[in-house]
Design a binder for these strands. Sequence first.
DNA 1: GCAACTTTGTGCGTGCGTTCACAAGCGGCT
DNA 2: AGCCGCTTGTGAACGCACGCACAAAGTTGC
Lengths: 258, 258
Amino acid sequence: MTVPPEAEREGVGDVARLRSIPEASVARLALYLRTLGELSEQGAETVSSDELAAVTGVNPAKLRKDLSFIGSYGIRGVGYEVRPLVHQLEQSLGLNHRQAVALVGVGNLGHALAGYGGFDGRGFPVTALFDVDPDLVGIHINGILVEHVREIPRIAAERGVTIGMIATPGPAAQAVCDLLVSAGVQCILTFAPVVLQVPADVEVRKVDLAVELQILAFHVARRNLDHPGVTTGTTNGHALVNGAADNRTVNGSGGIHS
Amino acid sequence: MTVPPEAEREGVGDVARLRSIPEASVARLALYLRTLGELSEQGAETVSSDELAAVTGVNPAKLRKDLSFIGSYGIRGVGYEVRPLVHQLEQSLGLNHRQAVALVGVGNLGHALAGYGGFDGRGFPVTALFDVDPDLVGIHINGILVEHVREIPRIAAERGVTIGMIATPGPAAQAVCDLLVSAGVQCILTFAPVVLQVPADVEVRKVDLAVELQILAFHVARRNLDHPGVTTGTTNGHALVNGAADNRTVNGSGGIHS
DNA sequence: GCAACTTTGTGCGTGCGTTCACAAGCGGCT
DNA sequence: AGCCGCTTGTGAACGCACGCACAAAGTTGC
Ligand SMILES: NC(=O)c1ccc[n+]([C@@H]2O[C@H](COP(=O)([O-])OP(=O)(O)OC[C@H]3O[C@@H](n4cnc5c(N)ncnc54)[C@H](O)[C@@H]3O)[C@@H](O)[C@H]2O)c1
Ligand SMILES: NC(=O)c1ccc[n+]([C@@H]2O[C@H](COP(=O)([O-])OP(=O)(O)OC[C@H]3O[C@@H](n4cnc5c(N)ncnc54)[C@H](O)[C@@H]3O)[C@@H](O)[C@H]2O)c1
């Protein structure tokens, strides 16, 4: 890249770099970050791209390129120093500030989400719960009071909520989404099997489990075309690594082309 | 493509077609299917690609191309007949047979999943539940007995389980995964934040909520680089459609390039 | 039956993401 | 100090996916 003459200082370069990180890489960076955290706990001080790639199931070259997007400080001949790299990843992913999360819909799934410690532990404290069910509004879950959805605009603003999670039934999701958006929430994670309509400056990520299962089912079907009679698999020791940070973690297809 | 001389008959073509459907398209096909189901309930008999595209937030041309992969029967000048298209999609996605699902780990999240009716309703009956916790083994959830994980190989085979869902803590996930694989399960959906090692003929899809949140957080950070002071959003009427079947449902970036 | 309109199906250019392969850089060893 | 081996960072090729734009094919209206 031949360092642009003036860009010696850090801040400037970072901004430019952040803008240009490919979506797909961002997802993997999050995966690297978590894996590095584990390695760090196990006492590792440096990791080579090959090692980290093996653990995360990613191609080593791709991993290095991903890291290069955040202006990584790897040491040639050695690898990456775990601690600084973790710090750099957190910085680049915007994890230096905690992001308050509001969860709307405290039913079956919502309860599980509200009670999950993993969010707070990773810098995403669930600071507000909402529902319409009078039996739920007023109770506490994990120490957090469930409030009525009509309070979303006020409370979300008060608590500086930046991320909304929607776990309501599908039909209610759009209305809830609108409320969140009107409260200034620009990032939404939804579990409702509905396509949400949002303004252009809001980002939505959808977790659709039924679709996930259907994708798997498709692969079952594809497989059965080849081996119609097979019902039970064989034993096995591990064989192939697998991962990739987006959830499209394919891996079968024994190398057949066209 | 120039039709291979002999491939006049249907069955053959289907196999060839199935093999070659791009992963990304499969995800969207599942989305179309669900949306068509809703349209069908509302009495629609035909849909144009433009209509369906608008509802699902997908580019119309892309949608038509997706449908062409399954050898669609659209009518030029009219659109697609909803009923036959639904049928065709179900066939192509392998939804003509119900796929038995086994769920391992019936804790917070597992309970919600086990109690969810949406899976059975879409052809994915949860037919087996497993856990190690003696307080859980033996109880019924939604009418299904929770069994000990050591029974996985036997019971999964007995009940013809084709899909495994893992909702155990991370550290237990790999062992559980191995058990499922040894029981012949070739498709796994996991919620554990761990990269699973599996043989090459097993497909894993990972739903990693922490990663989802981090991706959203990244976009918050990116945004704040531009508008450092903004805390509360503005009002708005809907603006842009949004969807796409993989959960990477981006949509911001008001058209800026480079 | 013909013309005008509508919508599908797809060929093709473009851009993104992945992967290979290698030069540049760094540490350790002699 | 200089060489050797290892690992990073990236240039460049490849392949896939997206989306435009248009021809083919059907329908409606006259
Ligand atoms: N439970 C699962 O495992 C699971 C799996 C996949 C998808 N989902 C999806 O997640 C969503 C929630 O599933 P669930 O099983 O928790 O459903 P649920 O019915 O148990 O819970 C929904 C909750 O949303 C609340 N609600 C309804 N309308 C609301 C509104 N307008 N504003 C705020 N809250 C409202 C209800 O009072 C209820 O508490 C659904 O869209 C479902 O399709 C759930
Ligand atoms: N709860 C959530 O909302 C949520 C959100 C994101 C991710 N997750 C992930 O989903 C997984 C489950 O989360 P949870 O909140 O339900 O945890 P949990 O601790 O409530 O439940 C885990 C269950 O797995 C069982 N288990 C433990 N070891 C097992 C083994 N070897 N075999 C079979 N079962 C075993 C436990 O007995 C327990 O019932 C975790 O990996 C978590 O990181 C959960």
